[in-house]
C-alpha cells in the first residue's frame, strides 16, 4: 500500500474517524443490548431475574458462576448432546434431552418438568448449537425460564466441577 506520505496519513486519519463514527452508529442502535451485557443483566443477574415476558422470546446466557445459584433456585440442567455422549460423561445431576430424537423424548420430559421451572441447557461448549436450539424449542413449548450455559460440558469439566457417567 505505497502512496505519498501526506495522502497516506490523511487516509489513516479518515479511517480512524470512519471507525469511530460507524462504531457510534452501531452503539446507538444496540445501546440497550450492550448496556445490559455490561450491567450483567444478560449474564450474572440471576437474583434480579429478567421479567418472564422477556424470557418468552429468547433464552438467557448463563455463566459457570451462575449455575450454582440457578440450581439453588430449583434449576434443572439439561444436556442437549447426543444420548451416547451423555451416557459417557455429563454434568452431575443433568438430565438428557438430546436434539437428536427430541420428538420421542420430549413428551416424557414435559410430563416430569413444570413449565415454570428454571431450565439450563448446555452442550459441548462455545460454538455448539444444540443448547441454543433446545432452549428455543423449550421456550416455544411454553417454558418461561430458560437459560443457556454456553461454556457447556468442556468448561464445567475443566473447572473441576462434578461430572458423572459410564466413561469415568
Amino acid at each position: 500500500m505505497n502512496s505519498s506520505g501526506p495522502a497516506w496519513w490523511w487516509s489513516l486519519v479518515q479511517a480512524v474517524l470512519l471507525l469511530i463514527c460507524s462504531s457510534l452508529a452501531g452503539l446507538a442502535v444496540n445501546h440497550q443490548l450492550v448496556f445490559d451485557a455490561f450491567a450483567g443483566r444478560l449474564t450474572t443477574s440471576v437474583e434480579a431475574a429478567t421479567p418472564v415476558a422477556d424470557l418468552t422470546t429468547f433464552p438467557v446466557p448463563a455463566l459457570l458462576a451462575d449455575i450454582d445459584s440457578l440450581l439453588e433456585q430449583g434449576g434443572l440442567l439439561v444436556d442437549a448432546r447426543p444420548q451416547d455422549i451423555y451416557a459417557l460423561e455429563h454434568i452431575t445431576g443433568a438430565v438428557s434431552l438430546p436434539m437428536l430424537g427430541l420428538d420421542e423424548t420430549f413428551p416424557r420430559f414435559r410430563e416430569q418438568t413444570p413449565l415454570d421451572r428454571k431450565i439450563i441447557t448446555y452442550c459441548s461448549g462455545y460454538g455448539c448449537q444444540d443448547s441454543f436450539d433446545l432452549a428455543m424449542h423449550l421456550i416455544l413449548e411454553g417454558y418461561q425460564n430458560v437459560y443457556i450455559y454456553e461454556g457447556g460440558f468442556p468448561e464445567w469439566q475443566a473447572a473441576g466441577r462434578p461430572v458423572a457417567g459410564e466413561g469415568l
Partner: peptide
C-alpha cells in the same frame, strides 16, 4: 456484545 454491536456497522 460490544464487538457484535459495532463491527457490523
Amino acid at each position: 456484545y460490544l464487538v457484535a454491536a459495532t463491527l457490523p456497522y
